[in-house]
């Protein structure tokens, strides 16, 4: 292990500055090939016209033997703008994702804090226990929730037999079920970054605060919370962002009124077989979301450089 390390070190060391370039290049090239190029393909499709062929869109560049014509078609984007359906679906998705991420934070933060403050080996045990359910298939867990939430399911049956309610509460096929499903599925995405952050929280700072007479609540708001901000941002991002495009959970737990952007995209692709409009939906969403998120991440990095 140390031998290998020394070899890498000296090899990189000999390269000097270019070692730095190499460290940048490896992930950069990977992402260029497997993310940027496919992404550009999608961008290209979003500007082309739908047709019945394989693949199902017209080429952008046409060559008639003498000259090339470039057919850029912005109608797909105009279409999104003109039908309120798409905007509404975006807004609804963002709302669902935001509520879910907030709920996940409210549940996840105390859990992560408790786990991070626990002594070993309990800490490792609890951390593994957070992940363990997620090594069974996601679909199984969502179906298990169906079993809980249905009108003759576990929750309703329990409540009825306890005499708390007379008629079953309709929970499945509602937005409530979608929130449950998303919070459940993404909870570890919240807990893990929070844990990684909180576990290194300097005890002496907390003690200092306590020594200076800070009440636990004050210590939490003035010391713990600001220090764990990077973890909170990371966790929130890991829940909020993927939840926006979520397709399977609303499909299995939500009602017919639950129209999230993932479903709209699916419709465009598979019901309409309109790859160009589907690509336009995805690109529009990416632009709307990536810009603020990138700003957030640069802010995080810049704040770090100033320290």
């Amino acid at each position: 292990m140390t031998g290998a390390r020394r070899v890498t070190e000296s090899a990189l060391g000999r390269l000097g500055l270019s070692g730095r370039a190499l460290v940048v290049a490896v992930p950069l090239v990977w992402l260029l090939v497997f993310f940027l190029i496919p992404f550009l393909v999608v961008a290209k499709i979003s500007l082309s016209e739908v047709t019945i062929a394989r693949p199902p869109y017209l080429p952008l560049l046409e060559w008639d033997g003498l000259r090339a014509t470039l057919n850029l078609n912005f109608e797909n984007y105009a279409y999104l703008w003109n039908d309120p359906l798409y905007g509404n679906a975006y807004l609804f998705s963002v709302r669902v994702a935001f509520v879910s991420a907030t709920l996940a934070l409210l549940i996840g933060f105390p859990m992560a804090y408790y786990i991070a403050r626990s002594p070993e080996p309990r800490r490792t045990l609890l951390l593994t226990a957070v992940i363990l359910p997620f090594w069974t298939s996601f679909l199984l867990r969502v179906y298990a929730w169906q079993g809980f939430l249905r009108s003759n399911g576990v929750i309703n049956n329990t409540l009825i037999s306890l005499g708390i309610i007379d008629t079953p509460i309709v929970m499945l096929q509602t937005d409530f079920a979608v929130y449950i499903g998303i919070v459940y599925t993404y909870l570890p995405f919240m807990i893990l970054p929070l844990y990684a952050n909180l576990v290194k929280l300097d005890d002496s700072l907390l003690e200092a605060s306590a020594d200076l007479g800070g009440r636990p609540v004050a210590t939490f708001f003035y010391v713990t919370l600001p220090l764990s901000m990077p973890g909170i941002i990371a966790g929130f991002m890991l829940v909020f962002v993927p939840a926006i495009g979520e397709f399977v959970i609303p499909e299995l737990l939500g009602g017919p009124n639950t129209l999230m952007i993932g479903r709209v995209l699916w419709n465009e692709f598979f019901a309409n077989r309109d790859w160009p409009v589907a690509s336009a939906v995805a690109i529009a969403m990416l632009v709307v979301l990536v810009v603020p998120i990138m700003a957030l991440r640069s802010a995080q990095a810049r704040a770090e450089e100033k320290r």
């Binding site: 496919p38 393909v41 926006i244 995209l265 699916w266 690509s279 990536v290 998120i293 990138m294």
Partner: peptide, 20 residues
């Protein structure tokens, strides 16, 4: 790099799968 490391989080799975 920042953009490319962020965008995969936002890309809906259907698009990621199809584009790849």
């Amino acid at each position: 790099l920042t953009g490319m490391a962020t965008a995969p989080l936002v890309m809906p799975e259907v698009i990621t799968g199809l584009s790849l």
